[in-house]
Every structure is written in C-alpha cells, then in structure tokens.
C-alpha cells in the first residue's frame, strides 16, 4: 500500500523584516507518497520554494519564524539538530535546483562533486566513490560517463548539467527527490527530456518526488498529485486528474486558461488580471480576491480553508460547488477541441 514519505502539517515560515513580516509560507499541508510525484505549482513568491527549502533545513532559521510539522519517515525535521539534518540532506532527501548553470561549483570536476556527496555520507574510499559517481552519470543518460566525470561543469550543456545534478541528488538512493523548477532555465526540447529522466528514475527507484514549477503544463505529464499555491497558501490540492479535469479554484482556472495549448483551439488567452500580492501586505480574507472575477461577499473577510467543499477534492474558495462547475464550463469549454 501507499507509504507516506513526507508529511507537512500546517507549515508556517515568516521572515520578520524592518518593513514588516514577510509571510512566505502561511499554513501549508500536504503529503508525498513513495512512488508518486507531487507537482507544486504557483507564481514566483507563492511560497513553493521556501516550503521545500524549509523541509531541507536550508533556510536561515535565525532570520525566520517557523512553525508546524515536517514529518519525514516519522521524524519532525523542524526539531532535528543541524547535524541530523545534514545526514538527511543528500542521503535521504536529494534536491536539484532551477539553474544548472550556477548550481554546480565551477572549479571542481563534475565526477568529484558527485563523489563528494558519497564521501560525506558513506564510509567508502575515493576510488569507490568515483566509480559510483560514474555509474550515477550513466544512470541519468549521460553518454561516455567516464570522460564526462572528469570534465568541469562549463564543458556540459544545460541539459547535461541538469542530468548531472540529478545524478548527484540520487547517487545515494534517497527516498525523496525535491526538484525546484528543474526545467525553467532549459530549452523547451530539453525540458521534456529532463522531466522524462526524473519520471523514469522515480519509477525505477520507487522514490517520492516533489516537482516545483510555475507552470501547470510542466507538472501535468509526470505528476500524480498536484497542489496549487498562491501567496504562501495552497488553494487547491488533488490528484492530477481531479485538478486538471475539474479545477475548482478561480486561480487554477486562471492558470489553465492563460496558457496556450496545442491540443485545443483557443480563441483567446485570458490573463489573470493584476499581479501577485506583496507577502508583507497579504490581502485580508482570500488572498486572491482582488484579482478574482468571481469574488463576492465573504471573500475579503474570511480566509477560506483548504478542504473538500463538495467539488470532489480539496480547494480553498468560498464559491459553491455549483458556481465553480459553471465557471469551469464558461472558462474552459470555450476552448474547442481541434478537429
């Protein structure tokens, strides 16, 4: 049966600054199961990256107020010591980042950077670590891995570098891979390849994956679960089918109808009006209400919590299930399938 790897409960990450408190993450809950990919979607500043940097213990805890629970294999990582976290990072949880051009040290060989992760966690010799690094490069589809391991990052293309990052993150067989916008900085043709590598390894190694992206399209093909975030909170959460086939929240609808699609004829793209709010002055009530075309009475007062509101999966919108269904038809059915 399904095994929960990571369970985040009511995570709050606030950064006090002289201008006010930045509510980067403001009540986020989700689970990631073994063998499944959770796609986390939101605009810049929606709190998706901070959420996972907090899971990894990579935010500066001195400058942040953190509460909630991050349960990884039963342990609350928010209460783990620095040393305990260090042993989990790289070993039990691997992470890759947005820009593979800047995410590797420019002055060390790629193979050595991978071996370094092995040597940090395993009691093996340098030669053994080097051989495993080469094997990891082979696993992610890098041709001639023996030669490639001896090269420096600048000798790699962007796609190859991201593959090498994946190799580095997975070399110790972690249970969980966190991919923070892994394709954003890559060419479109390479993006699909990288997603494919991640998906293939997820199945082969039977790990859990958190795939963070600002684009629903990116997570669509390879995620089993989807969570949409806005201004530090999740606004919709469900399986891939639920969220894509029956989106509930107006923000999710907005994201879907503002993206050009190849498979259906789109009369026009509908942008989401306005811009994401400042995380210091988050609008009261539903944070999305100033940009929402369907806002009504309670939206600027009551914060809608994330739960099943009769739409079949979780969302955080005051509208009735019937109204949401109607909005969905109006917004998405005007896109006729190409015949």
């Amino acid at each position: 049966m399904s095994e929960v790897l990571l369970e985040v409960r009511d995570l709050v990450v606030h950064f006090p600054t002289p201008d006010g408190v930045v509510k980067a993450v403001d009540g986020v809950s989700f689970t990631i199961e073994r063998g499944r990919t959770l796609g986390v979607v939101g605009e810049s500043g929606s709190g998706k990256s901070i959420t996972f940097l907090t899971v990894m213990g990579l935010i500066n805890r001195k400058s942040a107020r953190v509460s909630g629970e991050v349960l990884f294999e039963g342990r609350n990582l928010l209460e783990a010591t620095t040393e305990e976290l260090r042993h989990i990072r790289g070993d039990r949880i691997g992470m890759i980042f947005q820009d593979p051009m800047t995410s590797m040290h420019p002055m060390y060989r790629v193979g050595d950077q991978i071996s370094e992760a092995i040597l940090a966690h395993r009691n093996v010799g340098k030669r053994e670590a080097g051989a495993r690094a080469v094997e990891a490069l082979r696993q992610v589809g890098i041709p001639a891995p023996e030669q490639r391991a001896r090269q420096y990052p600048h000798e790699y293309s962007g796609g190859m570098r991201q593959r090498a990052m994946i190799a580095m993150a997975l070399v110790l067989d972690p249970d969980l891979l966190i991919a923070d916008e892994p394709t954003t900085a890559l060419d479109v043709t390479v993006q699909a390849q990288i997603l494919e590598v991640i998906d293939e390894l997820k199945q082969r190694l039977n790990i859990g994956v958190a795939l963070i992206s600002h684009s629903l399209a990116t997570v669509a093909d390879v995620s089993q679960d989807v969570m949409v975030m806005y201004a530090g909170r999740p606004v919709e959460r469900g399986t891939r089918g639920e969220v894509f086939d029956a989106p509930l929240h107006p923000y999710t609808l907005g994201l879907l109808s503002s993206v050009p699609r190849v498979d259906v004829r789109v009369e026009r793209l509908v942008p989401i009006e306005g811009s994401p709010p400042s995380l210091i002055n988050v609008p009261p009530g539903c944070a999305f209400h100033p940009r929402c075309p369907y806002r009504f009475d309670p939206c600027d007062r009551d914060v809608p919590d994330l739960r099943d509101r009769g739409g079949g999966h979780d969302d955080a919108c005051h509208l009735s299930a019937e109204a949401k269904a109607a909005n969905r038809r109006e917004r998405l059915d005007m896109q006729e399938p190409v015949t």
Binding site: R86, D99, T102, S103, H105, A117, A120, M165
Partner: peptide, 26 residues
Amino acid sequence: TEDYIRTARAKGLSERRVVMKHELRT
C-alpha cells in the same frame, strides 16, 4: 549567496567543508 553553495549544503556536506572547500576556493 551562490547557487552552488546551496547545492553543497543540499548534498549534506559539513559546514566546515562548505566553507573550506567550496567558498574559499572561489
């Protein structure tokens, strides 16, 4: 503040190694 320093931490390297090997070099 470089990305590759974050990567070094994400690999689970000790703070000492992050500073002595990754930060000092550049």
